[in-house]
């Protein structure tokens, strides 16, 4: 038990969650391809790069669950729903991370749309809460995110996503602020079946991260994924099952010392789009 507590503390203070409240990658699809998320366009774009939501045409909702290093104290539970309208795609997201003595939660409203020819843009406004009874008690903040996507050629897409471009204070202590992040990524669609994606991610005060992964469609329904990345060095594997309405994705990533982190996400498209 003691070891477990120490481990939890080490992880808490060594991952990007430190006094940050966000910028984690949500969804087992991203986890499966090494944590690359900038250029993906699916329900989870509402967390990872809101510009990707612009491509969505149906109302869709889903949940995602990650237990980092299989410790339930380090689990992230997420919910997302998107609503395409004539004037763009709206979304609502919610997620919580941690346990009673360290709990981060985030609620966001997101919006993504086409902005002119060949450029998609997305924004999100978050209300986030950090509960750390031993140190801060309860803190609530607002934060923002902005993302871009563009097609360079038919096959090559690139995008960028920024969180909290303006430094916002977390507490009265001027040295504690909400982390800013930027990620720039690209994906190349080799064929209908094979896609390769990579990205570079940087958060203030942390080493940059490089992630890359491959997605392979075995058939209409079955998808295999693999990837790798740095910060920490990891190996990722994933599996997906998709029908027109239902998507089930599972993934694990492996850290050499801390072991496996399983991920699961489910999503369901409720209806046909109102936007033909």
């Amino acid at each position: 038990m003691k070891i477990k507590t120490i481990l939890i503390l080490i992880v808490l203070f060594s991952t990007h969650h430190q006094a940050s409240g966000q910028a984690n990658i949500i969804g087992a699809r991203s986890t499966g391809i090494g944590g690359v998320s900038t250029t993906l366009t699916d329900l989870w774009s509402s967390f990872n790069n809101q510009a990707g939501m612009a491509d969505l045409t149906t109302i869709e909702a889903g949940i995602a669950y990650e237990t980092r290093f299989a410790l339930k104290e380090l689990s992230t539970k997420s919910f997302a729903v998107v609503l395409p309208t004539k004037s763009g795609v709206f979304g609502f997201v919610a997620s919580t991370y941690g346990f009673s003595d360290f709990l981060e939660s985030k609620y966001g409203i997101s919006y993504g749309r086409l902005l002119g020819e060949n450029i998609r843009i997305g924004i999100q406004l978050n209300y986030q809460n950090l509960r750390l009874p031993s140190r801060y008690g309860n803190r609530s903040n607002l934060s923002g995110e902005i993302g871009l996507l563009t097609n360079i050629t038919d096959k090559l897409t690139m995008g960028a996503h920024i969180t909290n471009p303006v430094r916002l204070p977390l507490t009265e202590n001027p040295n504690e602020y909400i982390m800013s992040t930027i990620k720039i990524g690209s994906q190349y669609q080799f064929s209908k079946k094979v896609m390769v994606a990579m990205e570079v991610r940087k958060a203030t005060d942390f080493e940059f991260i490089f992630n890359a992964g491959i997605e392979y469609l075995v058939n209409e329904n079955i998808i295999l994924r693999g990837g790798t990345g740095t910060g920490p060095v990891k190996s990722n594997f994933g599996f997906g099952y998709a029908t027109k309405k239902l998507k089930i994705d599972v993934a694990v990533w492996y850290h050499q010392l801390l072991g496996f982190s399983p991920n699961l996400s489910l999503s369901y498209a409720l209806s046909k789009s109102s936007r033909e």
Binding site: G116, N118, M158
Partner: peptide
């Protein structure tokens, strides 16, 4: 140049 008026 994603379109005539925007460059990334």
């Amino acid at each position: 140049k994603v379109n005539p008026s925007v460059r990334l």
